[in-house]
Amino acid sequence: MSTPILSIITMGSIAAIFSLIIAIAYRKLKVKVDPRVEEIFSVLPGVNCGACGYPGCQNYAEAVASGAAPPNKCTVGGAEVAALVAKIMGLEAGEVERKVARVLCIGDREKSVWTAGYEGPQTCAAANVAGGAGKACSYGCLGFGDCVKACPFDAIRMNDKGLPVVYEEKCTGCGLCAEACPRDIIVIEPIEKRTYVFCSSHDSPKRSREVCSVSCIACGICVRLSPEGLEMKDNLAIVTDPEKVSDQAIEKCPTKVLFKI
């Protein structure tokens, strides 16, 4: 018998035996799996290269489905896969609209008071531990860009005055920047919500005037003008319903902290 026939028989028999084993195993060993894991796994490249730090895509899919892992750890898949996975997870949470990051502080180097220089490690986390790196306001943005480093989509960048700026079209609302910010001034909100009090300081009116020229000094004018849209909580006005915030309240705000982007 010539070699090609022999090789066909060999390959055919090996494949037949093993595919039979797989088929039987598949039928007998069926195991119920969370449908979302299947859905995410189908989107992942399936290279099982472990670059995401998880040993294999199946394990990473399970981690994302159970919420233990962020949707963008798959370097091989890059941005498209991350967006897809985020969508699957996002979709799962019910609302359809996209979420974006908002930075609730506009006190950059010029507008806020800095009482000391800082030589320590150039990260917000370290600066925050070292007493706020000389920034008088103990709630405001330190400007060392931990959020920028954390963002895998390059959707947030520091402007020249040391304040992070969010690029809405790139932001997938994954929340990594919010996690990275030691002062928790970044919030993840639906994209439609555009009116905020861009300050997170709970200092007393006197103290907040001293430390920053664009801080919420808890004067209460905006709350009085549109009570349904705003609420004063511990010396800081917070927007509860963006539609109910009247233009008058925005004009009347003495430090121009309440506005619509």
Partner: peptide, 22 residues
């Protein structure tokens, strides 16, 4: 015995893939 040693790559990897699956 069949003198088809050139099949070693295909058959080995087929075995490994199926083995891992099972």
């Amino acid at each position: 015995p069949f003198r088809v040693e050139f099949l070693e790559i295909v058959s080995f990897i087929l075995v490994i893939a199926s083995l891992v699956q099972v």
